[in-house]
Amino acid sequence: MREVDVDVCGLVCPEPVLLVKKALEAKTQGTVTVLADSEAARENIKRLATGKGWTVKVEEQGEQWLLTLTK
């Protein structure tokens, strides 16, 4: 398993978004990787990140998704 910055697997809303929001606020630019295992978390994180001007790349990894957020 690759190292990720934020692992939100097994968490339900709003925790995934809250954790990613904190990570994005701490980093402000560069790359943040997020591992999610639910559609809800994936979509909510995508919406949060794009809303804050980050570009989001989603890779499916079995039953999980690796989101790479860059700015």
Partner: peptide
């Protein structure tokens, strides 16, 4: 749609997210 009726108010307060 991941519809919810707690989420609308929660997300608006927490994240200003109107989805």
């Amino acid at each position: 749609a991941r519809f919810c009726l707690v989420g609308p108010i929660r997300d608006l307060i927490m994240f200003r997210d109107p989805y």
